[in-house]
Simulated assay, not measured.
Amino acid sequence: MALDKDTGKLRWYPVYTHPRAEKKAYDTLTNKGVEAYLPLQKRLKQWSDRKKWVEEPLIKSYLFVRIAEHDQAEVLMTKGIARFIYFSGRITSMPDKQIEDLQLLMASSLELEVTEENLQPGEKIKIKAGPLKGLTGEMIAYRSQKQLLLRLDSLGCSIIVNVAASFINRF
């Protein structure tokens, strides 16, 4: 992929996929040579006759591509990709830090929950210890537990993880 003219580097873009097409779209993009990221989480699913661990996308119908702006058409021509995400009439990009934070969360052994609830912002915090050391976010009260809220504004969703209060610094 070519470098972005404005910044001299590639940028991350969230893309919306057709329902249940995230994995196939991801595979097709990577086979085309496009850098893509699909955060997957293992979940125990139960059917009437059995239970099985399956990998599901953390954020349904979303994946992330790291491309130059002029490569957007190539991504849209990929089977399973529905559209780019728009904010204020323009295709939105995400800071590298948000993708790095998401990758850090996925590498941890913590159970994550994604919510589209309109959670009210609280104190800004930074984790000072544990597997998520260095991660910043907002502290909220949720289901009577203190948890870290990592808000992904460009996607309109939030990721909530349990963090011990002793691991958190206010700033």
Rank of each mutant, 00 (worst) to 15 (best):
residue 72 Q to A: 08
residue 146 K to A: 05
residue 51 K to D: 00
residue 39 P to N: 10
residue 52 K to T: 14
residue 25 A to N: 09
residue 168 I to N: 01
residue 68 A to D: 12
residue 82 A to W: 11
residue 169 N to V: 09
residue 119 L to Y: 03
residue 31 N to F: 03
residue 9 K to P: 02
residue 46 Q to M: 12
residue 112 L to M: 13
residue 145 Q to I: 09
residue 98 Q to V: 02
residue 147 Q to H: 02
residue 99 I to Y: 13
residue 26 Y to T: 00
residue 100 E to S: 01
residue 91 I to Q: 11
residue 85 I to G: 04
residue 118 N to A: 02
residue 81 I to F: 04
residue 152 L to Y: 13
residue 16 Y to Q: 13
residue 12 W to G: 12
residue 149 L to C: 14
residue 98 Q to I: 05
residue 146 K to H: 08
residue 136 T to C: 13
residue 19 P to A: 10
residue 148 L to A: 15
residue 72 Q to D: 02
residue 94 M to E: 08
residue 104 L to D: 01
residue 90 R to S: 00
residue 128 K to Q: 14
residue 71 D to N: 11
residue 116 E to H: 06
residue 18 H to F: 15
residue 68 A to V: 02
residue 38 L to E: 12
residue 13 Y to I: 03
residue 60 K to Q: 15
residue 135 L to E: 11
residue 166 S to C: 06
residue 70 H to W: 08
residue 116 E to Q: 06
residue 139 M to K: 13
residue 167 F to H: 14
residue 42 K to L: 07
residue 150 L to T: 10
residue 98 Q to T: 00
residue 75 V to L: 07
residue 62 Y to H: 12
residue 86 Y to S: 00
residue 9 K to Q: 13
residue 31 N to H: 12
residue 152 L to I: 15
residue 5 K to Q: 15
residue 1 M to I: 01
residue 77 M to G: 15
residue 131 P to N: 08
residue 21 A to L: 09
residue 11 R to L: 15
residue 145 Q to S: 14
residue 20 R to L: 12
residue 52 K to E: 14
residue 13 Y to P: 00
residue 136 T to Y: 05
residue 163 V to T: 05
residue 155 L to E: 09
residue 159 I to D: 07
